[in-house]
Design a protein around this nucleic acid. Structure first.
Lengths: 364, 364
DNA sequence: CTGTTAGCGCTTTCAT
DNA sequence: ATGAAAGCGCTAACAG
C-alpha cells in the first residue's frame, strides 16, 4: 500500500506542490530504486571504509535529489546511541540560563548533537522524573544544573553506572564525581566585596540565596574572606538569606530584608548581592523606596543582564562568562561520551569579571 | 554476555553503590524474569484494554522496583511517532524568546511531549538544515518562528505534506497555511503611538527593524494609522529602518539613526521603537548622548524586559504575553498532532499590554 | 486474558 | 566491493 508504485499519485488529497503524500523516503527505498542492497546504501551514506566510488556517488546523488534524511530513531536504536544529549536546568526563563544554553547548543549542534532541554523548576522530584525521561529517550549524556532542593545525587550516579556520562555546570556539588564547570564564585564575591571596601565602604551588608548550593555558599565565603582580610568585623544583622524560587516570594522577602537592613542601627552603607535576580530586584526596590544609590546605599551584585548600563543608576556587577560555561560544559560532556579517559575528572572554574558602574561608586 | 546471568558482578570495574554495570533493563528482561511473554508485559505497561489485574500489578511492581524505563527510540520507531516536537527559533538567547519557550515547554511536558529546540540564528540555510535534522529525529510536529531571511516556505509546506504538522508563532507569514499564534502587532503599535499623541506629542519618529516580517510591517502600519487617525502628517525623515541581526551593527546603525533624527529640523519630540532590542538600546544610547528622556525626547517601544521599571528613566513599553504565545502555540500544535480537524486553520492574535512608565510622559 | 509473530529503519557481521 | 541476514526494543495484529 505504501510505496506500492513509483508513480506519483495525482489524486491523493491535498496535493499542493506536486508532491505525493508518500511518507519519508527510507534507505530501503533507495536500495530498491537503485537495485542494490540496503547494506550498500547504508555504507554509501555513512561513508564506510570501502565502497565503490561510482556506487557511492550514485547513492548520494539519489539521496540528495530525493531529499533523503536518515531516521534518527532507527539509527539510534541500532547503535545504542542517539547523538542527543539531555540538558536539565532549573528554569529556562532567565537571561543567564539562556546564555548558557546558547553556548551548549552552539557547541553541540556544530558537532551533530541534538540537545533536549528540560526544566526542573527547582523541584527535586521533577528533576528525577526528567532524568528518567531523558534516559528513556536515549540520551548519550547529561548536562545538569541541579535544582536547589537536590541533596541526594543517586539519580545521577545511577545514570553514570548505566553508562551515561554526566557533567555538572553552573551549580556544582561534591556528591558526585565527574567533570564540573562553573565560575570561581568565591573569587567573584571576594572581588566585589573588596571593590566596595576599596571605595571606602566598611559597613557592607550581604543578601544571598537561602540554599546550600555552592553557588551561594562560596559567594558568602568570598564576602566573609574579603571582610576578614580587611580587618572588618562581620555583622550578622547585615546578612540576609532569602528564598528566590519564585518572583513573588522573592520580592516580598527582599523588600522586608531591605527594610530591616535600612532601619537597623548602625545601618549598612553598601550591599553585596549574590544572585542576578536579587541584584536587579534590589535596585528596583531601593529605587521604589526612594533611596538614592549609591548615595544612601551602594550596591554591587552578581548579574548578567545586558541592561546594567541603562539601569538607574547603572549597576556594578560581577559578570559571568555564561556562554563559555555552557560551551565548555558541552565540550567536557562530549569528550566523555566519545570515550576520553574518565579517570581524571576535573572541575573547571572560569574567572568572573568585575564590571564597575555607578551603583558602587564612593559616597562623595 | 549481556545479562547472561542474574548474579551481580562484584568484580566489574568502578562498582560504586552495589549496582552492576548491567545496562538498562528492557521489556524483554521483565518478560523473562516473570516468565511471561513480551507482549503481555507491553500490555501491562501501556495499560492496554484487557490484561489480568494480577499480571498487570506483577509487571508494574517489577518494573518500578527495577527502575524500568521504556526505550523511547524503540517505541518511536515502532509507532512512527516520537512524542517529541521540534521548536525552531532564531535565537534562544533573549528574554522574550526564553519566556515563549518556557510556555511551550510547560504545555508540552505536562502532556508527555519532549521538545527539541534548535536555533536558526536568523539564517535561512540553517533553518532548512535544522528542519531536516528535526524531521530525521522523528518529531511529531514543528513549532517555528521563522528566520527573518525566510521568504520561501517550501521546506515547511513540504513537512506538512510529509504529515508533520507545523505551527507558526511570534513571526507569522501568509506563505503557509496552518495555525498561527502571535500578538496583534498592529494594535500594539497603534496603541503606543496613540498614547504618545494623547500625551501631547505630534512629532513622533519611528525606528523599526529592516525586514519584511509581519512583526515589523504590522507595527509600522499601526504607527502610520495612529498618525493618520489623528490628522498628523507622516514625515519620512523621522522613520528609520535598521539591521538588528547582531548587536554591533544594531548599535552602530541605531546610533547613526538617532543622531540623524536629533539633528534633523524640525526634530521629533518622541520615538516609537518597534522591537525589544531597539527599545532598550535606544534608551541606552540616548542616555549616553546626554539626552534627557522624556524631556528632550520621549520614548515608548515594544519590550518584554523585566527591568523596565528600573531603567533610567523607567521605560514605557508595549508588553507581549510571551508565555501565553508559547503555550497557545504548543496547544495548537498538539491538537493538530492528535488529529483535530485540520480543515480550518486559525490565526490567533493575542492582545498586547501597554505599560506606561516615565519615558513617555508629557513634556511638562 | 495471553502467547506468537512480524516488522518499524537502520547498521553490521559474515559471506561471497 | 557488495549482498544476505540478524537484531536493536518495542507494539500490534492475529491466534488461541
Amino acid at each position: 500500500m505504501i510505496n506500492s508504485s513509483k508513480s506519483v499519485s495525482l489524486t491523493s488529497k491535498t496535493v499542493q506542490t506536486g508532491f505525493s503524500m508518500n511518507k519519508n523516503i527510507t534507505l530501503q527505498d533507495i536500495a530498491k530504486a537503485l537495485n542494490i542492497s540496503a547494506s550498500t546504501v547504508s555504507r554509501a551514506l555513512t561513508d564506510s571504509y570501502q565502497i565503490g566510488a561510482k556506487t557511492k556517488k550514485l547513492v548520494l546523488d539519489y539521496a540528495k535529489q530525493h531529499h533523503y534524511v536518515p531516521n534518527r530513531m532507527a539509527r539510534g536504536l541500532k547503535e545504542g546511541k542517539s547523538r542527543s544529549i539531555g540538558v536539565l536546568v532549573c528554569s529556562i526563563d532567565n537571561n543567564f540560563m539562556a546564555q548558557m544554553l546558547d553556548g551548549i547548543d552552539q557547541h553541540c549542534s556544530e558537532r551533530g548533537y541534538q540537545i533536549i532541554i528540560m526544566q526542573s523548576k527547582e523541584l527535586y522530584e521533577q528533576e528525577k522524573a526528567n532524568v528518567d525521561l531523558l534516559y528513556a529517550s536515549g540520551i548519550d549524556g547529561l548536562l545538569i544544573s541541579p535544582s536547589y532542593q537536590t541533596v541526594d545525587f543517586s539519580h545521577l550516579t545511577h545514570l553514570q553506572e548505566l553508562g551515561v556520562p554526566v557533567v555538572l555546570f553552573d551549580r556544582l556539588s561534591k556528591h558526585i564525581d565527574t567533570h564540573k564547570v562553573a565560575v570561581d564564585n568565591f573569587k567573584g564575591a571576594y572581588d566585589a566585596t573588596m571593590h566596595l571596601i576599596n571605595n571606602g565602604y566598611k559597613k557592607i551588608a550581604h543578601i544571598n540565596w537561602d540554599t546550600e548550593l555552592s553557588v551561594a555558599t562560596k559567594r558568602f565565603e568570598g564576602y566573609k574572606q574579603a571582610l576578614e582580610d580587611s580587618g572588618i568585623k562581620l555583622n550578622n544583622d547585615w546578612i540576609k538569606f532569602i528564598d528566590t524560587t519564585n518572583a513573588e516570594t522573592l520580592t516580598l522577602q527582599l523588600d522586608t530584608a531591605l527594610q530591616e537592613l535600612m532601619d537597623f542601627r548602625p545601618s549598612p552603607k553598601a550591599i553585596f548581592t549574590a544572585t542576578d535576580l536579587i541584584s536587579t530586584k534590589c535596585l528596583a526596590l531601593l529605587h521604589k523606596r526612594g533611596y538614592s544609590v549609591p548615595k544612601d546605599i551602594a550596591l554591587i551584585g552578581f548579574s548578567n543582564t545586558d541592561l546594567a548600563d541603562v539601569l538607574n543608576p547603572s549597576l556594578s556587577t560581577v559578570h559571568q562568562p555564561s556562554f563559555e560555561i555552557g560551551s565548555l560544559a558541552a565540550q567536557q560532556l562530549l569528550s566523555l561520551i566519545n570515550g576520553k579517559d574518565t579517570n581524571s575528572f576535573q572541575t573547571i572554574l572560569l574567572p568572573t569579571e568585575l564590571q564597575i558602574r555607578a551603583s558602587s561608586q564612593p559616597k562623595n
